[in-house]
Write a protein that binds this DNA or RNA. Structure first.
Lengths: 254, 254
DNA sequence: TTGTGTGAAAGTCTTCACAGCT
DNA sequence: AGCTGTGAAGACTTTCACACAA
């Protein structure tokens, strides 16, 4: 069945692990850079370094896509770029709308890498009537009233929410009702959506808080180490969250 | 620091799972909202809904912090806010620098939630001499030449990189050399740092690509379902966009 | 000889389900 | 009676280490 391309290796029991999917864009970026430098092939080790992961993980990840490498040689850069792009659905063009054109929304609209790989900003939408018509990133901002029409006219299925937290859920509901099934949420709030709709969130303050946690832990360990007479490990505290190393020795206050 | 805080419950064999740490800010936000509405106590189920997780996970998460709930009753909101804040290191103030004051950097500088909970923007830094002195978010932008001095004078240990990809690694190295040990990277590039330095990345295009992957999969399933005579699951929107070609291997609607 | 592809082991995270406090 | 706290089971992810193809 499946139109052509039945070529796929018997592997692939449908379902690439989520952790792998989340790394594919990383590999793709590294591969694209290699491609631009006309590098023909790359080993799992080299590519892994470029992508910031370890090679075993990379090979395992690629094994879910199929056997695209050549033993003793490595991977063909162009071919892999294509395979990963296809797997990620980037061989087609995704129109995207950005709702909420404040500082952040404008920044996103202006973000180049956005429009590049497979995505196209179809419209900028804001609730403020004052904004309507104003050009941002060379594109006129449209009023929220137009939201449903815009989604429908452009066949938009991916929406970016960059509104204040207060309005996010409502915007989300309108987007979903109009046909959007994937949402990237920058508003610092939890969005509730029906089944079948994907939401990913990007939250500055959450990231900072996670960093603060580790930062505090470093400070604590340093102090503990000093107190115990142990010299603070050269800039090598529990940097990596889980570190297979032996969990800090005796921090125990007893 | 490390003010006598030996109060800690006997539990806590040191080491809260990373996955739990990543959710603490979510709980904290939900709790803060409850606190503002003067809600005195909350059950794991209610709080879980507000934070967008399930209650078993939430209880397990809290169990790593200690036994802060009351069986048959729930959790004391104020007390939990305090405990989580302390665990995350938010009872102290973290000076932060933002490097790269373009659209995004300016948006981050203006982001309110930033300055709120425990973080304070200590300086805005940009490499463009033209920017120097210009006020952004009520604060003069400073030139990169000042970077080391600023970090050191303010005891900054957390840096935010919002430069173009090209300059990110170099900025990162200067930040680290100057004493920064936690970095939030918005530049679309992999940063290499020494052990002991934490990096978290926020990458718009990666998030979009992950959404596109799932979006494509939905379209594929929909097409397959239609082909198999099964009605597409509810909201069949994205119809206009649908998958590019077939791909749709064995569907197995069971 | 080199470097992929992958079973198997180890490590993490989530979910279940219920004992035990209030 | 109600809800927390948590062992134990299950699911997912990473890492190991080596057979095997080029």
């Amino acid at each position: 069945m499946a139109t052509g391309r039945t070529h796929r290796p018997a592997t692939r029991s449908r379902g690439i692990p989520e952790a792998t999917v989340a790394r594919l864009p990383l590999y793709l970026r590294a591969l694209t850079a290699l491609s631009e430098r006309s590098v023909p092939t790359v080993s799992s080790e080299e590519l892994a370094v470029a992508a910031g992961v370890n090679s075993a993980k990379l090979r395992k990840d690629f094994s879910y896509l199929g056997s695209y490498g050549t033993r003793g040689v490595g991977y063909d850069v162009e071919y892999l770029v294509y395979q990963i792009s296809r797997e990620l659905g980037l061989t087609q063009d995704w129109p995207v709308v950005i709702v909420g054109i404040g500082n952040l929304g404008a920044a996103l609209a202006n973000y180049g890498g956005f429009a590049s790989r497979g995505f196209r900003v179809a419209a900028l939408i804001d609730a403020d009537p004052e904004m309507a018509g104003k050009p941002v990133a060379g594109m006129p901002v449209q009023h929220t009233d137009e939201l449903e029409r815009i989604i429908s006219d452009n066949g938009v299925s991916i929406g970016v929410i960059a509104t204040p937290a207060g309005g996010a859920q409502q915007v989300c509901e309108r987007l979903v009702a109009a046909g959007v099934t994937s949402i990237l949420n920058f508003a610092p709030t939890v969005l509730t959506v029906p089944d079948g709709v994907d939401v990913r969130k990007v939250d500055l303050s959450i990231e900072l808080q996670i960093l603060a946690f580790h930062e505090q832990r470093k400070a604590g360990e340093e102090a503990a180490a000093a107190e115990a007479g142990t010299p603070p490990p050269l800039r090598s505290t529990a940097a990596s969250r889980k570190g297979p190393d032996g969990e800090v020795p005796a921090v125990m206050p007893a």
